[in-house]
Amino acid sequence: MRTIRHGTSGRRGFPRRSTSLVSFLTDVRGVTGVDAALPATVTYHDSCSGLRELGIREQPRQLLKSVEGLTLKELPEADVCCGFGGTFCVKYPDVSNAIVGKKAKHIASTGADMLLAGDLGCLMNMDGKLKREKIGVEVRHVAEVLAGMTDKPPIGGKL
């Protein structure tokens, strides 16, 4: 609570009862800014479930912009699936690879230091591809940045 600024419409406190990583973001509706700091250029991938099932688009961007020192570079085709798809990525690895390969190229093209998203599956998938392609972009859950927890090692470690 101490790290979150509420907008006028915000009635809820910090997501105490947050039960999933994605709903973390929906729960912070009405929150307009955080008191975190991160001197880095980041880019953001919209996870499909967040974007199309829960309608999360502006919220994480708005919150990220409130992080001190952070520059947000939009990811080309940020709303396109990363190719994870649960079982899809192991059942159809070649197709999945083609999709995440495109995603990795887009990520690299932003020149960002860090890739953020709100879905663990997407993050693992993109991180795995970036590492394999030796693209040195750190991958984190967007909540880690918003909660000021980037001192912990990132999802797939560092390259």
């Binding site: 990525c89 192991v90 690895p93 394999r132 880690e144 912990k152 999802i155 470690g157």
Partner: peptide, 26 residues
Amino acid sequence: GWTKWRDLPAPEGRTFMQAYAQSGHG
């Protein structure tokens, strides 16, 4: 299927949500 094209991350011994809970944030 996964590791043919990607590395599989083995993250820190606890997940973000565990870490998050323990740090008293939620």
